[in-house]
């Protein structure tokens, strides 16, 4: 605890000394995720979507890890401490989270899509990283960084299942993605007030650019490797900042 307070202090002073016009009083930052397919909201098990190859599908599960989040300003970053979040479309509470940040003006957001390699090799974890969350491989230790499950008539799997469990944290098999988003307008964090940053994801990104992936050819991905890396290359482009609500 003391150690953590110390780190916080260090970060605060670092941020404070870089950013101009930032007072020492912290404000609250709320980050919300709106998951969509090309802007259409995802209703699990119900909405039928069509991918760029005219294949239709429904989504039954959609979850991903956001970790090591930080707000950026021209001279540095403000890091969220112990930053591990599981965004799960089936759990409304998981779609937003908040943390206190140093007051001031920020121009962007960086985070890791997935769980950093250190936490993948450090034994039993808790909270968002609890293996109870069903985002952990037991036969080949490591977190599933992002998961989509659904159904599609074009799938040749039993029960027309579509299942993408994307993971791999080490060496050539790493699917970890550093995501950097620039705010359309400056984000102001002010003492005692809440600023909200709304991020929209577009699941359609999983199908193409740079890699075209058809359900008929790839209905499943359940281990680290080439296919997982291709899907991760695609989904790394699924985020955009939809709205900033300054206090």
């Amino acid at each position: 605890m003391r150690c953590r307070a110390y780190i916080l202090l260090l970060l605060l002073t670092a941020a404070g000394s870089f950013a101009n016009g930032q007072s020492a009083e912290p404000g609250l930052v709320k980050i919300s995720f709106v998951n969509t397919v090309t802007g259409k909201p995802i209703l699990l098990d119900s909405t039928v979507f069509t991918n760029p190859f005219s294949e239709t599908y429904t989504i039954t599960r959609f979850k991903y890890y956001i970790s090591n989040l930080a707000l950026t300003f021209p001279e540095g970053v403000f890091k969220e401490l112990d930053s591990y979040h599981l965004v799960d479309q089936s759990n409304a509470q998981s779609l937003s989270f908040g943390f206190t940040a140093l007051a001031g003006t920020y121009d962007g957001l960086v985070f890791l899509l997935g769980v950093d390699s250190l936490r993948n090799v450090s034994g039993a974890q808790s909270g968002a990283l609890d293996p109870l969350n069903d985002m952990f491989w037991t036969w080949n230790t490591g977190y599933i960084m992002a998961k989509m499950e659904g159904r599609s008539p074009q799938s040749k799997l039993v029960n027309r299942k579509v299942e993408y469990h994307i993971g791999g944290f080490a060496g050539v098999n790493s699917v970890l993605k550093n995501i950097k988003l620039t705010f359309p307008v400056p984000v102001n964090v002010s003492a005692g007030k809440t600023t909200e940053i709304i991020i929209e994801t577009d699941f359609a990104a999983w199908w193409q650019q740079p890699n075209e992936l058809k359900i008929s050819e790839h209905p499943v991905c359940s281990s680290p490797g080439e296919l997982a890396k291709k899907i991760a290359d695609n989904y790394s482009k699924m985020f955009r900042v939809r709205q900033i609500i300054n206090p």
């Binding site: 034994g123 039993a124 037991t138 036969w139 080949n140 230790t141």
Partner: peptide, 29 residues
């Protein structure tokens, strides 16, 4: 751990037998 080295930490090893359908067949919850 394991014959193929698939498990990288003694703490997470039990998750494998507990959840495997051909071992303990359970789930954590």
């Amino acid at each position: 751990l394991h014959w193929d080295g698939g498990v990288n930490h003694i703490e997470v090893q039990p998750l494998s037998p507990i959840t495997a359908p051909n071992e303990m067949g359970e789930n954590l919850d």
